[in-house]
Amino acid sequence: MPTPEFVLALREKIGHAPLPLIGVTAVVFRDEKVLLGRRSDNGEFAPVSGILEPEEEPADAVAREALEEAGVVVRVDRLAWVHRLPRTVYANLDEVDYLDLVFRCTWVSGDPYPADGELAEVGWFGLEELDGVGPDHRRRIALALAEDDPTRFEGGRWTSSPAA
């Protein structure tokens, strides 16, 4: 999927300056497997992710991204992790500061396929088959795996108790 229109409109005003955006990641489980796609832009295997649109609810965005990118309908179960990604600088010199909201999701229907071209391939992987998945994505999966764990927040600098 191309860059969202609202981002292009903002870029016309701010140029390449850092732009704060909210990203959503869908860690989708079906039985004992997790949905992963090989990204078309960098070849990494990763959970489905995307950008929150203006006035969109985060849980709606993560379900939309799962359908748009992988052709699957999901139930959004819980927020698993809130964290800031390191600043991203794209080849065109645009800078973005992403806040990533990672959601645990459960597959409802649909056979996964690369629906919009953002993923070159997509499928179900056993939890023992994650060797080719980068450490940041493995962490997203691990934090989403536990069904009843509280949401993990990064940082802790401004809290009264140390981060777990």
Rank of each mutant, 00 (worst) to 15 (best):
P2N: 10
A63Q: 02
L127P: 10
P86W: 01
V122F: 10
D111V: 12
V62A: 09
E12G: 11
C105P: 06
L143C: 03
P20K: 11
D148R: 07
P58V: 02
S40P: 01
R157L: 15
F103Y: 15
L10A: 14
V108N: 04
S161Y: 01
F6G: 08
H83I: 04
T106N: 09
Y98L: 10
P4S: 11
L99C: 11
E121D: 09
L93Y: 05
D94T: 00
A80M: 03
E55V: 13
I14D: 14
L119A: 07
L8I: 10
L21F: 14
L21I: 13
R87F: 02
S49T: 01
E95N: 03
D148Q: 04
V72H: 15
R64S: 05
P18Q: 02
G37P: 03
P54Q: 05
G43D: 03
V73Y: 12
S109F: 03
D77F: 01
G50N: 00
F29S: 14
S40W: 01
C105Y: 09
F103W: 09
N92C: 07
S160K: 15
V96D: 06
L21G: 12
P86L: 01
L145P: 12
E118L: 08
R84W: 04
R157E: 13
E55I: 09
G155S: 11
A80P: 06
V7N: 11
T88V: 02
P47Y: 06
S49I: 00
I51R: 12
